[in-house]
């Protein structure tokens, strides 16, 4: 989708055109769901947060600064909406073997998406067990969503140095977590 179309939809939405906003929802909801799910690790919660994200986006659209990418702005709203869930990561006791089996299952296209989502959630919860909310956020945005540092700065309000530190600590913590399965 071209940048021109998105800007056009944003302008029309600003003029109160809900159908233009529906196009924006259709374009970004999958991406935002994927991100939110990786944060909250729960399908139902993720659905609610995605809905809240887009409703907030509609409400605060006049405040959107077009010098930033629209997707970055949406990520920021989604991050704020899921902030409460960042703090309650439940630890599951999974064996290393089980973890790998579940990761292998993710590649299979025959499985239902729900099972994939469940396995993904379990793996992320297990890996992010010892991470602080900031570390989890930075790890998800950088390593899983593939965003660059500049975008992450805009979303999290963390400096580049803070992002680097949090990412280093997150990777270290995950590796240590994995070490338990190897020994």
């Amino acid at each position: 989708m071209s940048e021109h179309n998105i800007n056009e939809w944003i302008n029309q939405s600003l003029a109160g055109n809900r159908w233009a906003f529906k196009e924006i929802v259709g374009l970004y909801q999958q991406k935002i769901f994927s991100y939110v799910f990786r944060i909250v690790c729960n399908e139902e919660e993720a659905k609610d947060i995605v809905q809240e994200t887009f409703i907030r986006a509609w409400t605060f659209l006049p405040k959107y600064d077009s010098s930033y990418k629209f997707s970055t702005w949406l990520y920021k709203i989604a991050t704020n909406c899921s902030r409460n869930y960042l703090k309650k990561t439940k630890a599951l006791a999974l064996s290393g073997e089980k973890l790998l089996t579940m990761a292998e299952q993710l590649k299979s296209t025959d499985l239902e998406q729900q099972i994939i989502n469940k396995n993904l959630a379990k793996i992320i919860i297990q890996l992010a067990h010892n991470l602080t909310p900031k570390q989890k956020l930075v790890f998800t945005l950088k390593c899983l969503e593939g965003l660059d540092t500049e975008d992450i700065t805009g979303i999290t309000n963390l400096s580049a140095a803070q992002i680097k530190d949090n990412l280093y600590l997150a990777k270290k913590s995950i590796r240590e977590q994995l070490q338990k399965y190897i020994v």
Binding site: Q30, F33, L106, K107, Q113, I116, L120, I123, C143
Partner: peptide, 9 residues
């Protein structure tokens, strides 16, 4: 694997 697998509906 986690990067390649997108949670979806």
């Amino acid at each position: 694997t986690l990067q390649a697998t997108k949670p979806s509906l």
